[in-house]
Nucleic acid binder design. Structure first.
Length: 708
DNA sequence: GAGCACTGC
């Protein structure tokens, strides 16, 4: 056990006061109020504006109202978009009550599964995801006079897409009788990039609440941030005034381990005179909501709360009473590796903007201190901004969405930070194999001249250029000479109607063809949400025993049928929360799956698909699954190891897959590959299928290549 | 033999 010894404390540089407290602002109203006139006159004049202000400046609640009351014409509609559902609903509710109106009348919201809107709604809060979907039926965003994009500094996937779509819509409406006004709001003062993207749009600064925040960096680099974390927690506990501590760590295991040591150490320390108790509270998204709620309840006056959190506390949850922040300086980030065709979850250093965000969580209710477990020099060497999500994730869904919107050139779509051409090509190739897009020759004047007149062909060297797509080595056309245009097929348009990965959407449609749509709705729903099974940390004491009881759901065919069985049992229980707890299942994810299924079913009905069930033929849903997930196929080699058809890379069966309970199956489909650690590539979830089903599902080009 | 956080008319 580690104890905070005198010689192992983390030395911090002398405190520097970066700002002063100003509690008067609390009563005088929000800082933004005095800037109202100036903002309004700028908004009237400009077609695009950037608003910079801290959370707490009131910009998210006030700017939309200024626009509605003083900028748009009577009856004009303002849309405010956010990365997160809870924020959209909370803001709508807050603004609605500020205006003493009923939520859903003048002020409303629209998020997935939930909306409060009426024909008279002129101020609508929504999520970026909803806005991106709306653009499919309304690419000019014609319903809105003003579009406000909030929290743009987070660079969430849908925010970047929405921003690019908004620019395109604004361009299309420029010079018409109803131009689109765009207001982009960000908390990061570093707006050079954003400003250039928005053609030099003026930046309007809103003064934030002035709060006292003291930053202390480590004096020397720390080799072990977990050790430094423990030392600092107890140093703060011994030396600093009352106030709760928020610690940023990377993940569940690390948090639980640190919590255990912390509790042991505190039992030792509390024996000493004058040392108060501490209450250690883990906080991460996999925890059941009831356990998460504990961080919001106050502790007794003689006790100090220590919250050990992941990134969830950086943006999603704001914990009251935090006075001290301990920032480990590291974060876990998911990246999609197109070459491996896998998600890689890795620990890395935070960006400066994230460090600022973490520090800002201290002293929201009074003067605070942020302890950084890294030196000021190390801080200065950090990247100023985090890599935008659009450069880290699989683009298959995003590109299908853009094509459905009618974006003319998806390969050259003007994102603020463009994804790599390889990532785009990999996703287009996937869409092509799914039959969602095709490349058609478009003979432009220039191209015709070139090919007919002098017969120029791509030179041999460029023609034989290879690139790796989804891990497969593929010959690519020379892009300079490539006159092929990417167009959406009828199938692609149908796939885009579903809020699903295109692969799963295709499997769902195959369910209609094979008369097992009801079963496929369940497969699609359970595979598109996080696992139903609680991991050890989220379990109650009796949990492990009950988890064993859960084995009764295990299907020899793997995870899709197993999860479907759990889901059916959940519905049979009457969607009962107690039943979930008794069986150590994640109620939130089961409820989510049930809402997803309902939504998918409604879309199927709208598309005119007939509901059908394969009650007497259990293999039909598995065959349908093959028709969507064939790119995720894996085979068992003679040496009893699994290998991906697409990439020929070895993969292993992940530890939580239901297939581990049965003997090795010759062909399986995986539902997500994870890379990292010692295991190489591992399949998080997998379902066994028959080789002939895979054969009938494959497009000809792949059937030939894979020799099925 | 191991899961950061979000989101989808």
């Amino acid at each position: 056990m580690m104890a905070p010894r005198g010689d192992s404390h983390v030395p911090y540089k002398r405190p520097r006061l970066s700002s002063t407290g100003d509690l008067a602002n609390d009563r005088l109203g929000l800082p933004i109020a005095e800037a109202r006139q100036a903002l309004v006159s700028q908004f009237r004049r400009l077609d695009t504006a950037i608003v910079v202000g801290d959370t707490g400046s009131g910009k998210s609640t006030q700017v939309p109202q200024y626009l509605l009351d003083h900028v748009v014409p009577r009856g004009g509609v303002v849309c405010v978009s956010q990365p997160r559902r809870v924020a959209a609903i909370a803001l709508a509710s807050r603004v609605s009550s500020e205006r003493a109106s009923v939520l859903g009348a003048q002020v409303g919201y629209s998020v997935r599964f939930e909306r409060a809107l009426s024909p008279g709604t002129t101020l609508c809060f929504c999520t970026d995801g909803v806005l991106c979907r709306e653009a499919i039926s309304d690419p000019r965003l014609a319903r809105y006079d003003v579009l406000v994009l909030d929290e743009v500094h987070e660079r969430a996937l849908h925010t970047d897409v929405a921003l690019a779509l908004a620019r395109a819509a604004q361009g299309a409406r420029r010079g018409t009788r109803r131009p689109l006004k765009l207001v982009v709001m960000t908390a990061t003062p570093d707006v050079l990039r954003l400003r250039r993207y928005l053609n030099g749009a003026p930046v309007l600064f809103v003064r934030g609440r002035q709060r006292a925040l003291e930053l202390r960096h480590a004096k020397s680099p720390q080799l072990d941030y977990l050790h430094a974390t423990l030392v600092t927690i107890f140093q703060v506990h011994r030396e600093e005034d009352r106030g709760d501590i928020l610690v940023f760590l990377t993940g569940q295991d690390e948090i639980e381990a640190t919590a255990r040591i912390c509790r042991q150490l505190s039992r030792v320390a509390v024996g000493n005179a004058g040392v108060h108790r501490i209450e250690v509270l883990p906080l991460y998204s996999a925890l059941p909501p009831t356990v998460q709620q504990r961080v919001f309840s106050p502790v007794s006056p003689d006790c100090r709360k220590v919250v050990l959190a992941t990134n969830i506390a950086e943006t999603s949850l704001t914990i009251p009473g935090i006075r001290y922040v301990i920032d480990s300086g590291v974060v876990k980030i998911k990246r999609h590796n197109a070459e491996l065709g896998a998600e890689v979850l890795a620990v890395g250093p935070v960006a400066q903007s994230q460090a600022a965000q973490r520090a800002g969580r201290a002293g929201r209710d009074g003067p605070g201190i942020c302890f950084r477990l890294y030196t000021h020099k190390q801080f200065m060497a950090l990247s100023p901004l985090a890599t935008p999500e659009i450069q880290r994730c699989d683009l298959t869904s995003v590109l299908l969405n853009l094509l459905a919107i009618g974006v003319p050139n998806v390969e050259d779509f003007d994102f603020m930070d463009r994804p790599s051409p390889d990532a785009i090509q990999a996703s287009l190739q996937t869409l092509q194999w799914l039959g969602a897009v095709k490349r058609i020759e478009t003979i432009t004047q220039g191209a015709r001249g070139m090919q007919a007149d002098n017969g120029v062909r791509p030179s041999k060297s460029t023609n034989e250029e290879h690139s790796t797509i989804n891990g497969m080595v593929v010959k690519t056309d020379d892009r300079k000479n490539n006159q092929k245009k990417i167009v959406l097929t009828t199938l692609g348009r149908t796939l885009a109607a579903f809020p699903l990965d295109p692969q799963l959407a295709k499997a769902l449609l195959a369910g209609s063809e094979l008369s097992c749509l009801e079963e496929m709705l369940t497969f699609a729903a359970v595979l598109s949400v996080d696992s139903f099974f609680l991991t050890s940390a989220g379990r109650s004491k009796e949990g492990d025993q009950a988890a064993t009881a859960c084995l009764r759901f295990t299907s020899p065919d793997g995870d899709a049928p197993t999860l479907a069985a759990v889901f059916r049992a959940y519905l049979a229980s009457g969607s009962n929360k107690t039943w979930c707890i008794e069986n150590t299942l994640n109620h939130r994810n089961l409820r989510l799956a049930s809402e997803v299924r309902k939504q998918l079913r409604d879309i199927c009905v709208k598309l005119g698909l007939k509901m059908s069930s394969s009650r007497n033929e259990p293999s039909l849903p598995l065959r349908a699954l093959c028709r969507g997930l064939f790119l995720q196929a894996v085979r068992l080699r003679p040496d009893r190891k699994y290998e991906s058809f697409a990439t020929h890379r070895p993969v292993t069966l992940g530890p939580s897959s239901a297939l581990r309970a049965v003997s090795l199956r010759p062909v399986v489909l995986h539902h997500g590959l994870a890379a990292g650690g010692s295991a190489g590539l591992s399949m998080r979830r997998a379902t066994a299928v028959k080789s002939e089903w895979l054969g009938e599902a494959l497009p000809a080009a792949l059937a030939h290549r894979w020799m099925i």
